[in-house]
């Protein structure tokens, strides 16, 4: 169960984590608890896998090259192909979706040449044609959205 302090920390600090030498102390003052309580709470949120990390979300466009890829795979082979794809360290999100194109993943690389090479290798390794759907324009990205605790 998520306790009150955890909720407060998440609600307040999905963005705007303090850039002070003692950020957890700043949070402690703001939330009226001790610094140690904040540190323990954040550590426990990470250990229980509620929080993956405290840190930056880089802008994909500015930090390198990335694209969304889809493959149509026979259902009984989906896990095997997904595993093949996961072996590429350039793949960071990989989902099964309800569609003829049922395997969807994001590929990120240092630059466009490296990205093309990776896509070529994935095509070769899996043996399936791929849909390469790079972002042309971003209207909105907000995975730090307000959570509903009920």
């Amino acid at each position: 169960m998520i306790n009150k302090l955890s909720q407060q920390i998440i609600d307040r600090y999905q963005k705007g984590f303090p850039l002070s030498p003692t950020p957890f102390k700043v949070m402690a003052n703001e939330l009226d608890v001790s610094e140690q309580e904040i540190i323990d709470c954040v550590e426990s949120l990470q250990q229980t896998d509620v929080v993956s990390r405290v840190g930056p979300v880089f802008n994909h466009k500015k930090a390198g090259a990335s694209t969304l890829v889809a493959i149509a795979v026979p259902e009984h082979l989906l896990s095997d192909v997904a595993e093949m794809v996961n072996e590429f360290k350039e793949v960071n999100h990989n989902y099964a979706r309800e569609h003829h194109y049922n395997l969807w993943f994001v590929v990120t690389a240092t630059d466009s040449k490296h990205l093309e090479q990776t896509l070529w290798s994935i095509r070769k390794k899996t043996g399936y044609p791929i849909l390469n759907l790079p972002m042309e324009k971003s209207y909105h990205i907000d995975l730090g959205f307000k959570l509903n605790w009920n």
């Binding site: 993956s52 990390r53 979300v57 880089f58 994909h60 930090a63 390198g64 990335s66 989906l78 896990s79 997904a82 595993e83 794809v85 996961n86 360290k89 350039e90 793949v91 960071n92 999100h93 990989n94 989902y95 099964a96 979706r97 309800e98 569609h99 969807w104 993943f105 994001v106 990120t108 690389a109 240092t110 490296h114």
Partner: peptide, 23 residues
């Protein structure tokens, strides 16, 4: 078209900066 996800095979932040080093 609506594509619900039904299985998550991998989820982690994009890693650009250690790729270069790794390569």
């Amino acid at each position: 078209d609506v594509l619900f996800s039904y299985k998550q095979f991998k989820q982690c932040g994009g890693r650009y900066h250690n790729l270069e080093k790794a390569n």
